[in-house]
Simulated assay, not measured.
Amino acid sequence: MRYPINYIAITRGFTSSHFGVDFGWNSNNGGPYHDIVAIDDGTVTAVVDGYGNTYPNNRIYGNYVLIDHGNGYSSLYAHALNGSIKVKRGQRVTVGQVLCKMNNSGYSNGNHLHFELRKSGTKIDPLPHLIALPEQKISPNSALLDRIKRGEEVVIKPETADRMRDQIKVNIDNLNIRSNPYLGDNIIGMLQRGIYNVFEQRDMRHEASNGYLWYRIVDDKSVWCAQVNGVDFYKAELPEIVHPPVIEQLEQEISELKQKNTEMIADFKAIMELAKKHI
């Protein structure tokens, strides 16, 4: 999941009393009416618009968009500019699609985006689930700088179970994937729960700083994940090769011909030996 804004300037993080992350603005990077974008593909489940910037008013979120991303995840984008919302309830949206503009509607005393991520209806800290893409700038003055992960997001969809292939089953949410099998390498995306094909294994458990078994999960790209708790590996179960009756018959005939040929050679050698004795 990408960040919901292309200039990342966190002003307030997720706490026990603030169930989301607030993003500020910069006059040289989008200004106070910065575009707000979808963090991932999904379906719009709620839209509220028509509220101005009265502080406070009877709508805490003011104008907002709520999106269902599947797998229990949903995201909310609050305090949007009145009349700026570009999507409708029931509409499918894609990652990075513009939803609305930043503003100050609802219970807010300054232009900002209040962003929430929810799992099965429970509000959770968004930062472990978000990746800053190369085109997204990060403010050097942002709060929680050390928690903003930079990467080029790679999205890999789960496969169906196939006992003819090596596969892993991911039983945890947001498993980091990296461009190389090293913990210090760039995080380029996250895997959700599901089945994924394995094209290569690399055992790095002998390295104290990198002690995992790693799996390459894309055929033609360097995309790796570690076998942490919650990741199970399944070895391909290749079936025993069974020869059709025709092949078995041919093999039997070839074997008989070889036997006859061996006998003929033995007879020929015996005749030659007898001939030598009478010369």
Rank of each mutant, 00 (worst) to 15 (best):
Y182D: 11
R178G: 03
K149Q: 14
K169T: 04
L175M: 05
R193W: 04
D185E: 11
A143P: 00
S179G: 02
N174C: 11
V242E: 14
N229Y: 13
A208Q: 13
K123E: 07
I124E: 00
F199C: 00
L191H: 09
I187C: 05
L257W: 14
Y182E: 05
L191A: 06
G230L: 07
R202D: 06
N174L: 11
I124K: 01
V155Y: 00
P244V: 12
M190K: 10
R205P: 04
A208G: 07
E207A: 13
L175P: 03
P244M: 14
V218I: 15
V154C: 09
L191N: 03
G230D: 07
E152Q: 15
R147F: 13
S255F: 08
E248R: 14
N197G: 02
C225W: 04
I254V: 14
S222V: 02
G189H: 02
D162I: 01
E256S: 10
P245I: 08
E153A: 11
L183E: 14
D125G: 06
D162M: 01
R163S: 13
E159T: 06
C225Y: 08
M204L: 10
D162A: 06
E200I: 01
V198L: 01
K258S: 12
D166F: 01
V242N: 11
V223N: 09
V198Y: 01
I217C: 07
S222E: 15
V231I: 13
L238H: 06
G211N: 15
E200W: 05
E237A: 12
A161I: 05
P140N: 14
I188L: 11
K235F: 04
D162E: 03
V218Q: 15
G184V: 09
K221A: 15
I168C: 00
P245W: 08
M204G: 06
L133Q: 04
N176T: 04
D203L: 04
M190V: 07
H206T: 14
I247A: 07
G151M: 03
I187Y: 03
L250S: 08
R193N: 12
S142E: 11
T160F: 09
A132S: 00
M204V: 06
N197Q: 05
I187P: 05
D166W: 01
N229H: 10
P140L: 10
G189P: 00
G151R: 03
H129D: 06
W214H: 05
K221G: 06
A143E: 14
V231K: 07
V228Y: 07
P126K: 06
V154Y: 09
Q227S: 09
D232H: 11
N141E: 13
A132I: 00
E253K: 12
Y196H: 00
R165M: 05
P128N: 05
Q201D: 00
E135V: 01
P181K: 09
S209I: 13
